[in-house]
Each structure stands twice: as C-alpha cells, then as structure tokens.
Simulated assay, not measured.
Amino acid sequence: MMMTPERLEELAAMSDPDKLWQLDINERKALPPEKKAQLEISIALRRYAVHQQRLSIALKSKQSLLITPMSKNSQAVKFVDIPADTRPKLLSEALSA
C-alpha cells in the first residue's frame, strides 16, 4: 500500500509535535537522544512524502525520475522522457498497478 504524500506529511507532523525540524543546526545538536530520534523520524517521513510526490508527477507526465546523489545529504533530481522503446511496457505496468 502506497501512502499519499499528504498522509505522510500528517504522520510527520504527528511524530514531531514540537516542530523540531524547524530548529537551527546548533539547537538540533543540543537535543537529547529521544528528541533527536523524534526529529529524524519527522524528517524521514517528510523526505519520503516529497519522493512519493515526485514519483506521482513523473507517472502522470509519463516521464522518468532521475535522482543523482551529489553528496551525503544532497541530490540532483530531474524529470526526463522515457525512451520510446520502453515507454509502452513501463506505463502500462505502472498504470495497471
């Protein structure tokens, strides 16, 4: 079952009622371990929500989503056309799922 980006955002908000994700880096470093875990959970859920939203956009626009790691904490994201020889098979499988 795929969760919608909206539901993932709701879960992120529920997991971080203190809005720790809005703290600056120095405040984050000073958090106790249980608050750091709370922060990591909410950030992971938000990142997954963004990823699911991008996948949905790619599917609707009949494109591929390329994600290239740039460093440990960053990535380049690009939507590109699906090669013509694979397009019919990929789209029919995705749309029927």
Rank of each mutant, 00 (worst) to 15 (best):
K29M: 08
P83K: 06
S64I: 04
K78Y: 09
P17R: 07
D24L: 04
S42F: 00
S74W: 05
P17H: 06
I57V: 13
R28A: 04
K78S: 12
E27G: 05
A12T: 00
I43Q: 07
M1L: 03
D18K: 05
S64D: 14
V80Y: 09
Q63V: 15
Q38D: 04
D24R: 03
L8M: 15
K36L: 11
M1K: 11
S64W: 04
R46N: 03
S61L: 13
S96I: 04
R28I: 09
E40M: 11
A12Y: 00
R46Q: 06
Q53M: 08
L8C: 02
A12G: 03
M2S: 07
M3F: 05
M70N: 07
I25P: 01
E9I: 04
D85M: 13
M2G: 02
F79H: 15
D81I: 08
L31I: 12
A97G: 15
N26K: 05
K60N: 11
R28T: 10
S56W: 10
I67P: 00
S56D: 05
F79I: 14
I43W: 02
K19P: 00
D81G: 15
L11I: 02
A13G: 02
L23E: 03
D18Y: 06
E34R: 14
S96P: 07
A94S: 10
K60Q: 12
L65N: 01
L11P: 00
L65S: 03
I41K: 04
T68E: 03
L55F: 04
